[in-house]
C-alpha cells in the first residue's frame, strides 16, 4: 500500500514539475521536442529522487552511529 502511494506521489510531483518546465503554451498535440523534454526531465527527476534518497539514508545512518 505504502509503496503504491509513494510511487503515485512521485508520479504526481514529477508530472507537475515536468509539465510546467516543458509545456510553455499548450498546443494541439504533444510535439516531438516536448516529448524529448519530458523524457529528459523525468529521468533527471528520478536521478534526483534517488540521490536525495541515498543522501538522506546515509545521513540517518551516520546520526544513528553517533548516538
Amino acid at each position: 500500500q505504502i509503496a503504491v502511494a509513494n510511487a503515485q506521489e512521485l508520479l504526481q510531483r514529477m508530472t507537475d514539475k515536468c509539465f510546467r518546465k516543458c509545456i510553455g503554451k499548450p498546443g494541439g498535440s504533444l510535439d516531438n521536442s516536448e516529448q524529448k523534454c519530458i523524457a529528459m526531465c523525468m529521468d533527471r527527476y528520478m536521478d534526483a529522487w534517488n540521490t536525495v534518497s541515498r543522501a538522506y539514508n546515509s545521513r540517518l545512518q551516520r546520526e544513528r552511529a553517533n548516538m
Partner: peptide, 12 residues
C-alpha cells in the same frame, strides 16, 4: 492544457 497534461501523464 488539460489534453496536454493528460498526454504528459500518460507518456510518463
Amino acid at each position: 492544457c488539460v489534453e496536454r497534461f493528460i498526454d504528459t501523464s500518460r507518456f510518463i
